[in-house]
Amino acid sequence: MPTPPLTVRALLLDMDGTLVNSDAVVARVWRGWAVDKGLDPDEVLRVAHGRQGHLTMATLLPDRPMEQNHAENRGLLAQETADTEGIVPVPGAGAFLAALEDLPHALVTSATPELAAARMAAAGLRMPAIRVTAADVSASKPDPEGFLKGAAELGHPPEECVVFEDSGAGIAAGLAAGMPVVGVGPRAAEHGPTVRVPDLEQVRATRLPDGRVRLTFDG
C-alpha cells in the first residue's frame, strides 16, 4: 500500500543517521570506550545513537558522578570531531537538502556545533542556516526541547512541523513534541515513526501555492 503524503509548514532534520552516515566513527569511538569500561560494545552503541555522550554514559553507568561523564565526554567529542574517516551522506541527502533550500527547515542534532560542522563538511552536505545543537538545549533527546526550539526558530507551531530521524531517542523526542516523524533507515523501524523510509532517495518535497510543503514517499 502506498504511503500517504504529509503536508506541513516546516521540516526539522536530525543529522547522524538521517543526513550523514557517521556509523563508522561512532562505532570506533564508542566501542573503544565500551572495552575500556568493561561493557558490551553492542549495547553501548544501541544506547549511544541519537543521544549526547554524557547522557549515554549516565544511562550505562548510573552510579558515576555527572561531572565525570561530562569530563570524559569532552575527550570523546574531540576524538569524534577529528575523526571523519568513513563519513558519507545518507543516500539522497544532498538532493533532498537542495530541494529544501528555499523551504522552511532546520537542523536539530545532539552533536556540538563543531562536530556538526565537521560531519556535514566531511559528507559534502550544505549546512542549514537554522540549526539547534547540543549547545542550544538543556535537555537532550529523547526530550523534545530541541525540536520545539527548532519549530519556534522557524516560526511554526509544532503540529505543523515534521521531524526526520533515525534513532529511538530522536523519534521519541519528535513524537513527544507533537510532530509526525519520518523514520529514516533500518534503526528507525522498531521505534514507531509515523512514516518509514530506507533513505532520503524515497522522499520528495514540493512547495504548495499556500506555502505549505507536501512530502511524498516512493514505494
Results as ranks from 00 to 15, higher is better:
residue 58 A to P: 07
residue 8 V to R: 07
residue 21 N to C: 06
residue 16 D to G: 04
residue 147 F to P: 07
residue 124 G to I: 00
residue 35 V to Y: 12
residue 129 A to Y: 00
residue 186 P to Y: 11
residue 180 P to K: 07
residue 171 I to A: 09
residue 88 V to T: 11
residue 152 A to C: 08
residue 155 G to H: 01
residue 3 T to A: 13
residue 17 G to R: 02
residue 26 V to N: 14
residue 119 R to K: 12
residue 76 L to H: 10
residue 5 P to I: 12
residue 12 L to R: 02
residue 1 M to Y: 11
residue 151 A to W: 02
residue 149 K to M: 13
residue 31 R to M: 05
residue 147 F to E: 05
residue 132 V to C: 07
residue 2 P to L: 13
residue 144 P to K: 06
residue 207 R to W: 03
residue 66 M to L: 14
residue 8 V to Q: 01
residue 62 P to I: 02
residue 19 L to V: 02
residue 9 R to M: 06
residue 92 G to Y: 14
residue 22 S to M: 00
residue 150 G to P: 07
residue 62 P to C: 07
residue 27 A to Y: 00
residue 61 L to I: 15
residue 22 S to H: 00
residue 65 P to V: 06
residue 98 A to P: 11
residue 43 E to D: 15
residue 218 D to Y: 06
residue 213 V to W: 02
residue 42 D to N: 13
residue 211 G to S: 02
residue 51 R to H: 07
residue 164 F to A: 09
residue 38 G to T: 06
residue 25 V to P: 03
residue 84 T to V: 14
residue 192 G to E: 09
residue 196 R to C: 13
residue 158 P to A: 15
residue 190 E to R: 11
residue 200 L to N: 06
residue 104 P to K: 08
residue 112 T to H: 03
residue 168 G to I: 09
residue 118 A to D: 03
residue 78 A to Q: 12
residue 146 G to S: 00
residue 192 G to A: 14
residue 31 R to C: 14
residue 74 R to E: 12
residue 184 V to P: 04
residue 94 G to A: 15
residue 28 R to A: 12
residue 126 R to D: 10
residue 146 G to D: 01
residue 196 R to G: 15
residue 28 R to P: 03
